[in-house]
């Protein structure tokens, strides 16, 4: 709960500016709403970008960070192309999502979030995405029975991907990866340390 002393004050805005990628742009929004109107998935959002920016100014920290709205962004860049103030809205949306996740505030069953996590975990194993395992883990994330159903439903898709050599059944054996996964892990670890160091504590 935000108290009156946080409402319409700079505290949350400053937090966003410090800890969210491109967050320093949020203050430049003039509430024209062209981003909201330009978003192809807009109708699925509880809060369109411009409204999120207003909520940030209003100090609605929890409401913003627990929202699933910014998880809806598909990076089409329509909003960035049209924003009259040049706000990198796509990046801000991803930045907000990442920050919410970092704080553990992201909505638990938000599917995009789940997918992102699976994608990340898959990628981190060998430094390259294993399409087959990625697909399977998606299908079976809600249990075995549901996984079989999902797999059957998407059978055609899988076959086509194999025909087009976008997926290889042999990948199940381990699959391709970068030369030195250990080094990658080190790089990622270092990057995370740097990023963690930048995050300011606003709690």
């Amino acid at each position: 709960m935000s108290t009156n002393s946080q409402k319409y004050r700079n505290s949350f805005l400053k937090e966003v500016e410090a800890n969210v990628e491109e967050g320093e742009w949020v203050k430049m929004c003039m509430q024209c709403g062209v981003c909201a109107g330009s978003c192809p998935l807009g109708k699925h959002w509880d809060h369109p970008p411009q409204e999120i920016f207003m909520m940030i100014r209003a100090g609605k920290r929890e409401e913003v960070l627990t929202s699933d709205s910014m998880w809806m962004c598909t990076s089409c860049y329509n909003c960035i192309a049209r924003c009259p103030r040049g706000l990198p809205i796509t990046h801000i949306m991803h930045g907000l999502a990442t920050y919410a996740k970092r704080l553990g505030l992201a909505p638990k069953n938000q599917p995009t979030q789940g997918f992102s996590q699976l994608f990340w975990d898959n990628l981190m194993k060998k430094g390259r995405v294993n399409e087959l395992k990625m697909g399977l883990s998606m299908y079976f994330k809600d249990g075995f029975a549901q996984g079989v159903k999902n797999a059957m439903a998407n059978q055609k898709l899988g076959q086509n991907m194999m025909k087009a050599k976008r997926m290889n059944a042999m990948e199940i054996m381990g699959g391709h990866g970068v030369k030195s996964p250990g080094d990658l892990a080190k790089i990622i670890k270092k990057a995370q340390e740097i990023e963690d160091g930048k995050i300011q504590d606003f709690s």
Binding site: G33, A36, G37, G42, Q50, E51
Partner: peptide, 11 residues
């Protein structure tokens, strides 16, 4: 015309 009325979010 497509857009969003920002006063109260109406598409």
């Amino acid at each position: 015309l497509h857009g969003v009325d920002t006063e109260g979010y109406n598409r």
